[in-house]
């Protein structure tokens, strides 16, 4: 019974994190850039929104400001990476750390309450059903916009940048600029998700972004697993990512209901994500048949017992043999 009553809340949270995960999808999948800025920029979005709303600014203006703040965070990471030559992961970590201070300064304290009873917010957990409806609208509009954008000349250039930077440069695409644009869009969406999260839960907290990248990746992975087999359309894949966020939170809720120690939840999430990240690698390494084929193709089979044994040996040993026969 407890689980069912918590379901709307889980769906609403899932949609918010799904939106955040769409941001992660843009960097991680489209740009091939593991961007850790998001742990900071989600909080930045939340902080900006909370401060402005509590100062009496219109909530839509506050959300727009949050969006822009996120874009600025993405810009910073992009500049670190492209103009200063810092590796992607490290650029994100640096920005994340900078944002920690920035977020504290924005809020002036570590925790800021944005009560739905006092302030005009768009969504609140007090009315989860209504929140789901509005969030659904948000996610749909954003998927539509992204679908349009990544079909434009600029958007196609960004996709190519992530896919094959060498080819992109040869086709006259400014790879550095495109990475920055992608990072800005991604972090703008993440910050918007942060702004929505703050309104929904009724407070902003300096720690609200900790581990956000893992939740985002989890949603991306779940979404890919769901949708990849059915349809490769970009909009459908983004919708899959949002759905991934919802499923993540439903499972999360379920695990809590089953009495799991909540202290362990982050660890479990991270381990599950680690395993799912490993699957494509393992697939390539052990199940593609590549190594076995290569060993079989090697003309002079070195072991005197005949080539059959070579083909049946563990795949890990096969490349070694290929190497020996080359010499």
């Amino acid at each position: 019974m407890g689980f069912l009553s918590a379901l709307p809340g889980a769906i609403a949270l899932g949609l918010i994190w799904g939106l955040m995960a769409i941001g992660v999808y843009i960097t991680y999948k489209v740009l091939d850039f593991a961007d850790l800025t998001v742990d900071g920029s989600i909080c930045t979005g939340g902080a900006v929104c909370a401060v402005l709303v509590t100062a009496g600014v219109n909530v839509w203006v506050a959300m727009l400001a949050a969006l822009l703040a996120g874009a600025a965070a993405g810009l910073l990471t992009g500049v670190f990476h492209t103009l200063m030559g810092i590796p992607a992961i490290l650029s994100g970590i640096l920005t994340q750390l900078i944002l920690w201070s920035v977020n504290l300064k924005i809020m002036g304290q570590a925790n800021l309450s944005v009560s739905a009873r006092t302030y005009g917010v768009v969504i609140s957990q007090l009315e989860a059903g209504w929140a789901i409806l509005i969030l659904f609208g948000f996610v749909s509009v954003i998927i539509g916009l992204l679908y349009w954008f990544f079909g434009t000349e600029l958007g196609c250039g960004i996709r190519a940048t992530g896919n094959n930077p060498n080819m992109s440069r040869a086709q006259g695409i400014n790879v550095g600029l495109n990475k920055i644009i992608g990072l800005m869009i991604s972090n703008a969406l993440v910050a918007l998700a942060g702004a929505l999260l703050v309104q929904y839960q009724g407070f902003a907290d300096i720690n609200m972004g900790r581990g956000a990248i893992v939740i985002g990746l989890a949603a991306v992975i779940i979404g890919e697993a769901l949708v990849n087999l059915i349809c490769r359309n970009f909009a459908v894949r983004l919708a899959g990512v949002a759905l991934g966020g919802i499923i993540y939170y439903i499972v999360y809720q379920l695990v809590i209901e089953l009495g799991m120690d909540t202290d362990l939840l982050k660890m479990l999430s991270a381990l599950v994500v680690a395993i799912f990240l490993a699957i494509p690698y393992w697939k390539k390494r052990y199940f593609s048949g590549f190594h076995r084929k290569k060993a079989a193709k090697e003309p002079p089979a070195p072991p005197p017992e005949g080539g059959e044994t070579a083909a049946q040996e563990p795949p890990a040993a096969a490349p070694l043999q290929g190497g020996q026969s080359d010499v």
Binding site: T152, E153, L154, G155, C156, G172
Partner: peptide
């Protein structure tokens, strides 16, 4: 060419 927001 400059890549714009026209269809790709």
């Amino acid at each position: 060419k400059v890549r714009s927001l026209m269809p790709g």
